[in-house]
Computed example of a mutant assay.
Amino acid sequence: MVKVEFLGPIGKADMELEVSSLKELKEVLKKDQELSSWLEDCAVAVNDTIVNSLEVALRSGDRVSLLPPVCGG
């Protein structure tokens, strides 16, 4: 199982999903109306490392974090 965290103002409880890649995870999350609007704007980290490709393979025990853009100074 892969743990998915939704940080900041997303306001969604963590999930545990059986997925093998970020591409597959995105397809699952797109089905949730609340989350679909965040997907294009969020940075994604796998095990605390920012990634830029959906081709990243995921293994059981991995943690994926969705990081929304923030304002601040």
Rank of each mutant, 00 (worst) to 15 (best):
V2W: 03
V2S: 02
K3A: 09
K3N: 07
V4N: 04
V4E: 07
V4T: 12
E5W: 09
E5M: 13
F6W: 06
F6D: 05
F6A: 06
L7Q: 10
G8P: 03
P9V: 14
G11C: 09
G11R: 11
K12R: 15
K12L: 10
A13H: 14
A13D: 14
A13E: 15
D14C: 03
D14E: 14
D14A: 10
M15G: 04
E16S: 08
L17E: 05
E18S: 12
E18K: 13
V19R: 06
V19F: 08
S20W: 11
S21C: 03
L22D: 02
L22R: 00
L22A: 03
L25G: 07
E27N: 10
E27V: 02
V28S: 02
V28R: 00
L29G: 03
L29Q: 05
L29P: 06
K30H: 04
K30W: 01
K30Y: 02
K31F: 09
D32T: 10
D32S: 07
Q33I: 14
E34G: 00
L35T: 00
S36I: 06
S37D: 08
S37A: 13
W38F: 15
W38S: 06
L39A: 09
E40T: 09
E40S: 15
E40F: 04
D41N: 06
D41H: 10
C42G: 02
C42H: 03
C42T: 13
A43V: 04
N47C: 11
D48Q: 15
D48I: 09
D48F: 08
D48E: 14
D48V: 00
T49I: 13
V51G: 08
N52S: 15
N52F: 08
N52L: 03
S53A: 13
L54I: 01
L54N: 13
L54F: 13
E55D: 15
E55K: 04
E55I: 05
A57F: 04
A57S: 14
L58V: 02
S60T: 09
G61Y: 11
D62H: 07
D62T: 12
D62K: 01
R63Y: 00
V64M: 06
S65Q: 05
L66E: 10
L66P: 00
L66T: 01
L67F: 01
P68D: 06
P68V: 00
P69H: 02
V70S: 04
C71F: 14
